[in-house]
Amino acid sequence: MGNGTSIGKVRGLGSAKHGTHHWLLQRFTAVGNFLGGLFLVASFLLLPDASYATVTGYFSHPVAATLVALFLVSVFWHARLGLQVLIEDYVHTPGNHFAAIVVLNLFTFIGAGFGLFAIVRLALTATLGGAA
C-alpha cells in the first residue's frame, strides 16, 4: 500500500486484498462449466434409460470420460472461487477467515480428487474388461 498515486492508496484494501486474477479465472472456468454442463444435460436427455449398463457404458467412453473429468476440474475450481467470495463477504475475523479458507480448500481438493479417481476407474475398468 503506497501513499502516492490514487490507485496506490487503495490497492490491497479490499476484503480479498487482490482480485483481477481471481475475477478472470472465475470467467474462464465459467465457460468450461457452461460447455461441460451443456454436455451433461444433453447426455441425460439423450440416454435411452438410466440403467447401470447404459449409463456406465456411455460415460466410460474415452471422450465422455475426458469431458466429465475436465468438467470436474472446471466446476470445482469455479466453486472454490465462488465460495471464497462468500467467505470474504461474511467471515471478517482474520483467524476464522483463515480457517474457513483452509476448510474450503480441503473440501474442493478432496472432492475433485475423488471425483477424478472415480471417473478414471470407471473408464479403465471398462477398457480392461474387469468386473467392477
Binding site: T56, L72, L86, F117, A118, L122, A132
Partner: peptide, 29 residues
C-alpha cells in the same frame, strides 16, 4: 449466489457420489 453456492455445497457432493457409485459397480449404482 444462492444457486451457485447451493450447487457447490450440495450439487458437487451429489455429482461425486454419482461418479463414485458408477465406478463402484452395479450394486453401489
Amino acid at each position: 449466489r444462492a444457486a451457485g453456492d447451493g450447487m457447490a455445497l450440495v450439487g458437487l457432493p451429489v455429482l461425486v457420489w454419482w461418479l463414485a457409485a458408477m465406478a463402484g459397480g452395479a450394486s453401489s449404482y
